[in-house]
Nucleic acid binder design. Structure first.
Lengths: 193, 193
DNA sequence: CGCCGCATGTAAGCGGTTACATGATTTT
DNA sequence: AAAATCATGTAACCGCTTACATGCGGCG
């Protein structure tokens, strides 16, 4: 039910489904994704249960906006979720499953190419997150001792993303080097498998 | 379709659905999970498409075992998956969403308790993975320059788990300390929000 | 005799993705 | 005139989880 609770979290201020989708596509994208269709569906279900309420508001461009905000029961559900302790998911890494079976391909060169691609992906993520933090530091004079508690928590979350990205990057670089050394060794003395 | 390909990967040697479930609950659990019901269902679908084939074998205890192994088309599908480049998923971290909204609870003490719990969870994971590596190092004299390519790739995967666990742990410890300092500051000079 | 481990499966439901459908306004 | 942006939604499907159902053999 995380999507529900995230929506309740965001709906402390009035927002439309369209706005919420932009939230998910923005900074949120580094730890949660939601499709537009899921957002509208969940909003509908939350309203049916009285967790949020909506009102129409005219728009500058396009059709009228439907603005949602959380109700008191909605706020209570959110707080209950927050009080319930860390919700740790079972993560799935398809790429690790691939790497695990890479031996079947019988070519360290393939592993090397694969890892080189990983290094690039990791680098890109790391750069993206670093830029977000740099921008923040530039815009907010109180950084990193942020005065708002909301900013403080948001920064902890950003730091998690950076820690992950840095770790993944270092792992990929180290793994690539190990694979290169291994390949040189095996091609040199004709050792295999 | 990762589950399918993982099963194909494991079915280079004959295994029953029951065996496969144990694989997922073992070392695999650190990067992929699969329920028993999903395994049997996927196996059925793979057999219908000729990707695996099965034979009955008597069991010491309990009902006869149905042993599956991958066919040549199955092997080709596996290799195609491996050749397709790293499959990077969109990860979802419910706990980061919680932390992001922790400000709504209006109490840094709650954040502190929450982070303390995170530290413990991270520590446990880190210990579990370290023990797996230590055990490996003890059992295999060629560690860490493993002679088999399969072991080599498995070790890269284990290293990824360790890198993640270490990063998460450091993040949690650092975050907890930051929160403690912040709380002391705010309770001292009566500053809020 | 009951419980545990071995071993097979089915059914219902939920969360998430992909694709489709519609229409207004602004920009090129 | 066409494309992009704003803005709403629906329908079908897929992967995964939870719960249920069955039955053998060994152990306390």
């Amino acid at each position: 039910m995380s999507v529900e609770n995230i929506l309740l979290g965001l709906l402390g201020e009035a927002r439309s489904g369209y706005d919420l989708k932009k939230d998910f596509d923005g900074v949120f994208s580094h730890f949660w994704a939601a499709e537009q269709s899921q957002i509208y569906r969940t909003l509908k279900s939350l309203e049916e249960r009285g967790m949020v309420e909506s009102s129409e508001a005219p728009s500058d461009k396009g059709p009228p906006r439907k603005l949602y905000r959380r109700t008191e029961p909605g706020r209570r559900q959110l707080l209950a979720w927050l009080a319930g302790g860390p919700e740790i998911p079972t993560l799935r890494f398809p790429y690790l499953a691939q790497l695990f079976f890479m031996g079947e391909a019988g070519s360290l060169e393939q592993t090397e190419r694969w890892l080189a691609e990983m290094v690039e992906e990791c680098e890109a993520r790391l750069v993206a997150l670093s830029e977000i933090e740099a921008q923040w530091a530039e815009d907010d004079p109180t950084f990193p001792d942020l005065q708002g508690d909301e900013d403080f928590h948001a920064h902890l979350v950003l730091r998690h993303g950076l820690a992950r990205a840095r770790a993944a990057h270092e792992w990929a670089v180290e793994s690539l080097e190990r694979t290169r050394r291994r390949r040189q060794r095996t091609t040199a003395d004709g050792r295999s498998s």
